[in-house]
């Protein structure tokens, strides 16, 4: 019988897996992960969840107002970010960038922005502009700019070069080549990315509310702090349904387009 693994490979596997196990144990100790504390917390957890079983239905109206605010934040943030990203992504693709220098700068800015977590962006904008919808919208613009430019510029990188060469060969300008050979190839995916980003943004904007960036997240955190779990559960229920509807709707449009 042929040996499947050489001795050298076996040693490597054993060494790597023991190293990973040791790292896991050390990490557990350092963060004071205690299984006993987890088990002790279970009864309180049950109590917590029990209070969720009676959502406060009368609280529906204020929730709806805030939910609409959340959707508006997501919509405005996504739309502005989409306009900027569509234009920007042509500078961040090696196929369409006017020069190597511009391409490099555009990608660097894009990659730096992508490293900043959404919640940090929101916290910073809340600190600058105060509590409300504006910092939420701004945070979403930056956050979704990062997602969309990445997806879109890579889509442009992957276009079929044949039609580009053909349009170039008739004596078209750079702009005409982009308009006639690149854009028709990327439009369906671009629309899909924008809808996807909108879906993500609805959820993100809920989280952003937790740090004061407006919307339903704001009343969620207020009610959690006041231990009004019946209201909290109503908020979660409404949000849950809203997210399902929006995702389904967006999915439906995406399927239609592709």
């Amino acid at each position: 019988m042929a040996r499947v693994l050489t001795t050298k490979t076996k040693v490597k596997i054993i060494a790597i897996s023991s190293l990973l196990t040791i790292l896991l144990i050390i990490s557990g100790i350092l963060i004071e992960f205690n299984p006993i504390a987890f088990i002790k917390g279970i009864p309180r957890g049950i109590e917590f969840f029990a209070s969720f079983l009676k959502p406060d239905i009368t609280y529906f109206k204020p929730i709806l107002t805030k939910l609409i605010e959340t959707l508006q934040i997501a919509l405005v943030g996504t739309t502005i970010a989409a306009i900027i990203s569509v234009i920007y992504s042509f500078f961040a693709s090696h196929v369409t960038a006017p020069s190597r220098a511009i391409y490099f700068i555009a990608r660097t800015i894009m990659n730096v922005l992508r490293t900043i977590p959404d919640i940090v962006l929101a916290a910073v904008f809340v600190a600058i502009f105060g509590i409300g919808a504006l910092p939420g919208v701004l945070a979403l613009i930056f956050f979704s700019f990062g997602i969309m430019t990445k997806l879109m510029s890579e889509d442009i990188d992957a276009v079929d070069r044949g039609p580009l060469e053909a349009v170039k060969s008739v004596g078209a300008t750079r702009t005409q080549v982009i308009a006639f050979a690149v854009i028709p190839q990327v439009v369906p995916n671009f629309i899909s990315y924008i809808l996807y980003t909108f879906e993500v943004n609805v959820r993100v904007s809920i989280v952003l509310g937790l740090v004061g960036a407006g919307g339903i997240g704001q009343i969620l955190i207020e009610n959690i702090r006041l231990f009004q779990y019946d209201k909290v559960s109503m908020i979660i229920l409404v949000t849950f349904i809203a997210v399902i509807i929006i995702d389904g709707f967006s999915e439906y449009i995406r399927k239609k387009i592709l």
């Binding site: 044949g162 053909a166 349009v167 060969s169 008739v170 004596g171 300008t173």
Partner: peptide
């Protein structure tokens, strides 16, 4: 570009914009 517009070109893979 001015020269190119007087030179037609066709390709093995046709290179039409499919959509």
């Amino acid at each position: 570009r001015l020269l190119r517009r007087k030179i037609g070109m066709i390709f093995q893979s046709f290179n039409l914009v499919k959509r």
